[in-house]
Design a protein around this nucleic acid. Structure first.
Length: 285
DNA sequence: AGACATGTTGCTCA
DNA sequence: ATGAGCAACATGTC
C-alpha cells in the first residue's frame, strides 16, 4: 500500500493516538524476516517502559522516537523505531485489550490504545537504533520532493545518467524520487503528459521542468489529501481522493481518463503495471 | 485456478 | 565499474 503520503497517514495515526505516553507492554510476532536487523527480544526490552516522544515520515518510511530514564534494573533508552511498510504494511490503533491477529507482527500497548503494525506479505522491515542521533540509514534518505533541495537541475542530471531507461522506471528510483511508488509515478507522468515508456534521456528540457513541477505538485497534493493538514487526519486511506485524479480510474478494467474521457491504456513498463492516457501521453521518437 | 498486487533486493549480463 | 532487467520474497484477493 504505502507510498509517501500513506506513510505520513500511518505515522499520524500512531502519533496522535499515543505521543507522550508510555509503552507498557510489547507484543512481537515470530516473523524473523521483518525483524532481521532488530531482534525482537531486544526491541521488546528497549520499548517496554519507554515513552513515545516524537515521529517523522520520509520517503516510504516512518521513524518513531522513544525515551526512558535509567532505573535500578534497566538502562536509559534513547531509541528510534524505524518501520518500512513494504507492499502490504499497515499501522492502526486498536483498543488496549487488542488480541494480536495472525499478521500483527508488532503491537505496542499504552494505557489507552494498542498500536498495531500488521503486514501479511512481510515485505516490510522493522529497525531499531539506539543513540541521540537518528540512524544513518534514515539520514541518507534522499531530499523530499517537496523540499527546496529537490531541484530541476538534480532531476535533469539524474535523467541524463539513466538515459536509456524508461521514465516510469526512473521515477521509481528512491535515490532521487523518495516516496514515489507505482501509483504516484503514473499520476506524475499523466499530469506531465509524458509517455511512461519514454527513455529518460529523450526528455526535452521543458518536459523535464514539467516533470519536476508535477513531482512536487503530486507529492504536495497527495500529502494534503491522504494524510490531511496539521492535526487533521482523514478517517481512512484514500477516501478523499478526487475523481479528477488518475488514481481512482487506473485499476478499473476499461477505466476512462478523467481528462479526455477516453479509455486508459495499461501495460507492464519498468517491471510494473503502468496506466496512462494514450492521447495526451504520446511516445515520441 | 491463475493472475495480480501502492516494494525492495540481489543476482546476472552488458 | 556502472547500469539494466528480472526473479524472488509471502500472502491475500478477484
Amino acid at each position: 500500500m504505502p507510498e509517501l503520503a500513506e506513510a505520513e497517514f500511518f505515522r499520524k495515526r500512531w502519533h496522535f493516538a499515543a505521543v507522550n505516553t508510555r509503552i507498557l507492554r510489547v507484543h512481537t510476532h515470530d516473523a524473523k524476516k521483518l525483524f532481521r536487523t532488530a531482534p525482537a527480544p531486544a526491541l521488546r526490552a528497549a520499548l517496554t517502559g519507554s515513552k513515545f516522544v516524537s515521529s517523522t515520515a520520509a520517503a516510504k518510511q516512518i521513524l518513531f522516537r522513544f525515551k526512558r530514564a535509567a532505573t535500578k534494573s534497566a538502562p536509559a533508552i534513547d531509541g528510534w523505531l524505524g518501520i518500512h511498510l513494504g507492499m502490504s504494511g499497515d499501522l492502526s490503533v486498536a483498543p488496549p485489550d487488542h488480541a494480536p491477529r495472525k499478521h500483527d507482527h508488532l503491537v505496542l500497548y499504552t494505557a489507552a490504545h494498542a498500536l498495531v503494525f500488521a503486514d501479511p506479505r512481510m515485505f516490510g522491515r522493522i529497525q531499531f537504533h539506539l543513540g541521540a542521533q537518528p540512524p544513518t540509514w534514515w539520514s541518507k534518505i534522499a531530499p523530499a520532493l517537496i523540499s527546496s533541495e529537490f531541484t530541476a537541475t538534480a532531476v535533469a542530471a539524474f535523467l541524463k545518467r539513466r538515459a536509456r531507461t524508461s521514465i516510469k522506471a526512473v521515477l521509481l528510483m528512491q535515490e532521487r524520487f523518495p516516496g514515489v511508488g507505482n501509483w504516484m509515478a503514473d499520476e506524475i507522468l499523466w499530469r506531465a503528459a509524458i509517455h511512461p515508456a519514454q527513455p529518460a534521456g529523450s526528455l526535452r528540457p521543458a518536459e523535464i521542468k514539467t516533470l519536476w513541477r508535477e513531482c512536487r505538485a503530486v507529492a504536495r497534493l497527495a500529502l494534503a489529501t491522504i494524510a490531511g493538514r496539521g492535526d487533521h487526519l482523514p478517517p481512512d486511506l484514500n477516501v478523499a481522493i478526487p475523481d479528477s485524479w488518475l488514481f481512482n480510474h487506473r485499476w478499473q478494467n476499461h477505466g476512462f481518463c478523467p481528462k479526455t474521457k477516453k479509455p486508459l491504456a495499461r501495460a507492464e513498463i519498468g517491471g510494473r503495471t503502468t496506466c496512462w492516457s494514450p492521447a495526451p501521453q504520446k511516445l515520441s521518437p
